[in-house]
Computed example of a mutant assay.
Amino acid sequence: MSSNELDLLLRQFKGHVNGLMNCEDELVDIKYQLRGIKKSKSRCTCEEAQPDGTKIYKNSIIDLEEKLQQVRKERNYHLFAVRQVMNLLKTLDNDEVKLLELYYWDELPIRAIGKRLNYSKSRVQQLIDEIIVKIGHVQ
């Protein structure tokens, strides 16, 4: 994986973690809804009444099962990306992980990281570049 690809992967990590958590919450909600429908033995629900009084019914179980599969696919997409980054981070020491955390997760500017760690801006950038190269060799 190139340095640019690794940089992009790390920049997207926070979004993947949040996406994964949202998917997990949504899966719990869908499973709860499915249990409720199956317990009530009602296969269809009235969506809404039309102006002429006609009711539109929708098969809730089929729709929820489809939504469940869609959310599972999305969760697996996010999970794959999260695991990929976690495996890369395992190869680093704590100081390297902390530096990447400040830059990619906390989204601090390089200058702010330098002040926090007592490094120059150029040294911080050099360290980040070295870490990217290091994890690039792990692939």
Rank of each mutant, 00 (worst) to 15 (best):
residue 4 N to C: 04
residue 7 D to Q: 13
residue 7 D to M: 08
residue 11 R to A: 02
residue 12 Q to C: 10
residue 13 F to C: 00
residue 14 K to S: 04
residue 14 K to W: 00
residue 15 G to L: 12
residue 15 G to N: 15
residue 17 V to G: 05
residue 18 N to P: 15
residue 20 L to V: 01
residue 21 M to E: 13
residue 25 D to M: 14
residue 25 D to F: 15
residue 28 V to I: 15
residue 33 Q to V: 06
residue 35 R to P: 07
residue 35 R to I: 06
residue 37 I to D: 03
residue 38 K to M: 13
residue 41 K to T: 14
residue 41 K to I: 05
residue 42 S to Y: 09
residue 46 C to I: 08
residue 47 E to S: 06
residue 51 P to E: 05
residue 51 P to M: 09
residue 52 D to E: 11
residue 52 D to H: 04
residue 52 D to K: 08
residue 53 G to Q: 10
residue 53 G to E: 07
residue 54 T to V: 13
residue 55 K to F: 09
residue 56 I to S: 04
residue 56 I to K: 14
residue 57 Y to P: 13
residue 58 K to A: 04
residue 58 K to Y: 03
residue 60 S to L: 13
residue 62 I to D: 10
residue 65 E to C: 13
residue 66 E to N: 15
residue 66 E to D: 13
residue 67 K to R: 15
residue 71 V to A: 04
residue 71 V to L: 06
residue 72 R to C: 10
residue 75 R to Y: 10
residue 77 Y to I: 15
residue 78 H to A: 09
residue 78 H to C: 14
residue 79 L to G: 04
residue 80 F to P: 06
residue 81 A to F: 05
residue 81 A to L: 07
residue 85 V to D: 02
residue 85 V to Q: 02
residue 85 V to A: 08
residue 86 M to T: 05
residue 87 N to R: 14
residue 88 L to M: 08
residue 90 K to S: 12
residue 92 L to I: 02
residue 93 D to E: 14
residue 94 N to T: 04
residue 94 N to A: 10
residue 96 E to I: 03
residue 98 K to M: 03
residue 99 L to K: 01
residue 103 Y to L: 00
residue 104 Y to Q: 01
residue 104 Y to L: 01
residue 105 W to V: 00
residue 105 W to N: 00
residue 107 E to S: 11
residue 108 L to D: 01
residue 110 I to Y: 03
residue 110 I to E: 01
residue 111 R to P: 00
residue 112 A to R: 11
residue 112 A to W: 03
residue 114 G to D: 02
residue 115 K to H: 08
residue 122 S to V: 15
residue 123 R to D: 09
residue 123 R to G: 02
residue 127 L to N: 08
residue 128 I to H: 07
residue 130 E to A: 14
residue 131 I to F: 04
residue 132 I to M: 04
residue 133 V to M: 09
residue 134 K to I: 05
residue 135 I to T: 03
residue 136 G to Y: 03
residue 137 H to G: 10
residue 137 H to R: 11
residue 139 Q to K: 10
residue 139 Q to V: 14
residue 139 Q to N: 13
